[in-house]
Design a protein around this nucleic acid. Structure first.
Length: 358
DNA sequence: AAGCCGGGGCT
DNA sequence: AGCCCAGGCTT
C-alpha cells in the first residue's frame, strides 16, 4: 500500500477514536443485535432508527423470540420505518437460522450472506463487527469518502464502479482490526464527510484529498441513473359500522406497503374521486351510506412515487360482507400495521372520537 | 442491468 | 423540489 493510502487509513482511525458516537449496537458483540441494527440502518439514518432498535430488541431479545413471532407483529413494530420487506425478511431469516443453523447465528461470511435480506454490505458488517473477519463494508458513506479522497469519478451505480470501490475498500481494510476500521470509515462519512456541507476546511485529510484540492467535493460521488417518479391517485373508503367496527384490507401484492393493512382502496387514473363519484361507487357496491365525510386531499411523497390520497369515511348501519375485508373493532386498529399516511388519519380520527366522548 | 421498495431530514 | 440515508430483492 502506498503512503497516501496509509495516511488515509491512519487518519480515518484517528478521527474515529476521537469522534465515535456511543450507540447501543457498538457496545455488544452479539451478532443478533448487530444484525438487527444493520437491517434497521439500511437506507435509514441513526436518528430515525434508534428508537426502533430499542423497542425491537426489547420485544425480541434473541433469535428464537423473533422466529416464533407472527409476521404481523414484526411488521407492527416496524410501522413507520418504511421498506417493509426488511421486516418480513428479518422474520424469515430468524426462522432460517432456527432451521438451518440450529438456532445459532452463522459465523462465516458466506453463511451470513445466505440469509434473506442480507447482501454484501450487511454480511461484511456483521462478519467484521461480530466476528472480526476481514471483509470491507461498502455503503453510501464509503462510496462518498473514497470517491472524494481518491478523486474517483466512476459511477457508484454501475457494475464497473462498484467493483472498483469494492476492491479499493478491501485493499484499504485494516486486517488487524476490521471492525474498528469499517466503523471508522462509515462514521467519518456519516458525521464529517457528509453529502452536503462537509467539514473540508477543518478536515485532517484535506492535504491529500483530491476532490478538495480540485474543488470537486460537491460533484462526488458520481451517480449515472436518476429515479423515475410516478404519480398515483388513491381513494380510501373507511367503512365504520355503527360506530363500533371498522374494515381493513391486507396488502398482499407486490407493491408498496406489502404486508401492511389499509382501508378499502379504489385507485383512479387521473385524479381523485369527487363526491358524486364516491356516491356512484358506493351504489355499485350496493352500500347505502348514513353519512359521508371526506378529509382534504393528502399529498404523500415516497422516494419513487407521488401519492395523492383522498380518505372518505363512510358510516353504515349494516354489516359489509361482499368486499373481502376484515371487520375489526374500532379500538383494535392500533394493533395493526398501517402505512404512515393512514396511521396519521387514524390518530386524528380517534382523537376526535375521544373528544366527543368527553 | 434495471426497476422497485418508505419515510424523515436537510438544503 | 431534490437529494440523501450503515441496501437488497425481483424481474
Amino acid at each position: 500500500m502506498d503512503n497516501v493510502k496509509k495516511f488515509f487509513v491512519q487518519n480515518i482511525l484517528k478521527y474515529y477514536s476521537k469522534n465515535k458516537r456511543d450507540l447501543p449496537w457498538r457496545n455488544t458483540k452479539d451478532p443478533y443485535k448487530i444484525w438487527i441494527s444493520e437491517i434497521i440502518l439500511q437506507q435509514t439514518q441513526v436518528k430515525q432508527g434508534l428508537s426502533y432498535y430499542q423497542k425491537f430488541i426489547q420485544r425480541f431479545p434473541n433469535i428464537q423470540s423473533l422466529a416464533n413471532a407472527k409476521e404481523d407483529e414484526v411488521l407492527h413494530l416496524w410501522q413507520g420505518l418504511g421498506y417493509y420487506s426488511r421486516a418480513r425478511n428479518l422474520h424469515f431469516a430468524a426462522q432460517q437460522i432456527q432451521n438451518q443453523f440450529g438456532g445459532v447465528f452463522p459465523q462465516t461470511y458466506d453463511e451470513i450472506l445466505s440469509l434473506k435480506g442480507i447482501g454484501e454490505y450487511t454480511a461484511a458488517a456483521i462478519a467484521s463487527f461480530a466476528f472480526d473477519l476481514p471483509y470491507a463494508v461498502v455503503d453510501g458513506n464509503v462510496f462518498r469518502v473514497l470517491s472524494r479522497f481518491f478523486g474517483i469519478r466512476k459511477a457508484i451505480d454501475s457494475s464497473e464502479g462498484k467493483k472498483f470501490f469494492f476492491d479499493l475498500a478491501n485493499e484499504l481494510l485494516d486486517k488487524t482490526n476490521p471492525s474498528e476500521y469499517n466503523q471508522a470509515i462509515m462514521e467519518f462519512g456519516a458525521t464529517f464527510c457528509t453529502p452536503q456541507s462537509p467539514g473540508c476546511s477543518n478536515c485532517r485529510l484535506n492535504n491529500y484529498c483530491i476532490a478538495y484540492k480540485k474543488n470537486s467535493v460537491q460533484q462526488l460521488p458520481v451517480k449515472s441513473k436518476s429515479i423515475n417518479k410516478t404519480t398515483r391517485y388513491l381513494n380510501y373508503f373507511v367503512f365504520i359500522e355503527k360506530d363500533k367496527y371498522i374494515y381493513l384490507n391486507k396488502r398482499i401484492n407486490t407493491d408498496i406497503w406489502k404486508g401492511l393493512y389499509e382501508f378499502y382502496l379504489v385507485e383512479s387514473k387521473h385524479q381523485n374521486f369527487s363526491l358524486n363519484k364516491i356516491k356512484e361507487h358506493l351504489n355499485q357496491l350496493n352500500i347505502s351510506p348514513q353519512k359521508i365525510i371526506s378529509v382534504p386531499k393528502i399529498k404523500h411523497l415516497l422516494s419513487h412515487q407521488n401519492l395523492f390520497i383522498k380518505i372518505t369515511t363512510i358510516y353504515v348501519n349494516e354489516k359489509i360482507s361482499n368486499l373481502n375485508l376484515q371487520r375489526i373493532e374500532l379500538k383494535q386498529i392500533e394493533n395493526y400495521a398501517l402505512p404512515v399516511v393512514l396511521q396519521k388519519f387514524v390518530k386524528v380520527y380517534l382523537n376526535s372520537k375521544k373528544d366527543l366522548d368527553k
